[in-house]
Simulated assay, not measured.
Amino acid sequence: MTTAPGQLPVAEQAPRHPSDPDPARATKTRAVFALGLIAALTGLFIGGIVPATVALQLSRQARREAYASGGFLTGARWLRRGEQLAWTGLLLAAFALVALAVIAVVRLAQAPFGYDYPANVD
Score class of each variant (00 low, 15 high):
residue 93 A to R: 13
residue 108 L to Q: 08
residue 68 A to C: 02
residue 56 L to A: 06
residue 102 V to A: 15
residue 102 V to W: 09
residue 21 P to Q: 00
residue 92 L to Y: 03
residue 5 P to F: 06
residue 122 D to Y: 07
residue 78 W to F: 12
residue 79 L to W: 08
residue 51 P to F: 05
residue 113 F to K: 05
residue 55 A to F: 03
residue 99 A to Y: 05
residue 44 L to S: 12
residue 47 G to I: 01
residue 80 R to F: 09
residue 35 L to D: 02
residue 4 A to E: 10
residue 118 P to Q: 05
residue 55 A to S: 11
residue 113 F to M: 04
residue 100 L to V: 04
residue 33 F to A: 09
residue 67 Y to A: 11
residue 34 A to W: 03
residue 111 A to G: 00
residue 103 I to C: 03
residue 38 I to Q: 13
residue 72 F to C: 01
residue 64 R to I: 04
residue 102 V to R: 05
residue 35 L to F: 00
residue 32 V to N: 09
residue 76 A to E: 14
residue 98 V to H: 07
residue 55 A to Y: 04
residue 63 R to W: 09
residue 80 R to K: 14
residue 115 Y to N: 15
residue 46 I to P: 01
residue 74 T to L: 14
residue 74 T to F: 05
residue 96 A to Q: 10
residue 99 A to F: 07
residue 91 L to C: 12
residue 62 A to I: 01
residue 54 V to A: 10
residue 97 L to P: 00
residue 119 A to P: 10
residue 64 R to L: 02
residue 73 L to E: 01
residue 66 A to T: 03
residue 52 A to S: 13
residue 88 T to K: 10
residue 53 T to Y: 08
residue 79 L to D: 09
residue 119 A to D: 15
residue 15 P to S: 13
residue 97 L to T: 13
residue 40 A to G: 10
residue 111 A to F: 00
residue 55 A to I: 03
residue 68 A to N: 11
residue 74 T to C: 03
residue 53 T to P: 00
residue 102 V to D: 00
residue 81 R to G: 03
residue 83 E to M: 00
residue 32 V to T: 08
residue 71 G to T: 12
residue 107 R to F: 10
residue 72 F to T: 02
residue 27 T to W: 15
residue 91 L to V: 11
residue 95 F to Q: 01
residue 104 A to K: 14
residue 5 P to D: 06
residue 11 A to L: 08
residue 21 P to D: 00
residue 48 G to L: 02
residue 60 R to C: 03
residue 119 A to L: 09
residue 16 R to G: 00
residue 83 E to F: 00
residue 47 G to A: 02
residue 8 L to P: 12
residue 90 L to F: 04
residue 22 D to Q: 12
residue 25 R to Y: 05
residue 102 V to Y: 07
residue 63 R to T: 14
residue 106 V to P: 03
residue 93 A to S: 15
residue 81 R to F: 04
residue 3 T to L: 15
residue 118 P to A: 06
residue 77 R to K: 13
residue 92 L to I: 04
residue 97 L to F: 11
residue 84 Q to F: 06
residue 38 I to D: 11
residue 95 F to V: 01
residue 96 A to C: 02
residue 45 F to P: 02
residue 52 A to R: 12
residue 46 I to A: 07
residue 54 V to R: 13
residue 112 P to M: 02
residue 23 P to H: 01
residue 12 E to M: 07
residue 57 Q to M: 11
residue 27 T to I: 07
residue 11 A to I: 01
residue 66 A to N: 03
residue 54 V to E: 12
residue 93 A to H: 05
residue 29 T to C: 08
residue 19 S to F: 09
residue 91 L to F: 11
residue 26 A to E: 06
residue 109 A to E: 02
residue 112 P to S: 10
residue 22 D to M: 13
residue 51 P to C: 06
residue 83 E to D: 01
residue 18 P to F: 07
residue 24 A to I: 14
residue 6 G to L: 10
residue 13 Q to M: 09
residue 80 R to M: 07
residue 24 A to E: 15
residue 71 G to S: 14
residue 37 L to T: 11
residue 110 Q to L: 15
residue 10 V to T: 14
residue 27 T to M: 06
residue 91 L to N: 15
residue 31 A to W: 05
residue 105 V to I: 10
residue 6 G to I: 08
residue 85 L to E: 03
residue 3 T to G: 10
residue 7 Q to G: 06
residue 82 G to V: 04
residue 105 V to E: 03
residue 47 G to W: 05
residue 122 D to F: 08
residue 14 A to N: 03
residue 109 A to G: 01
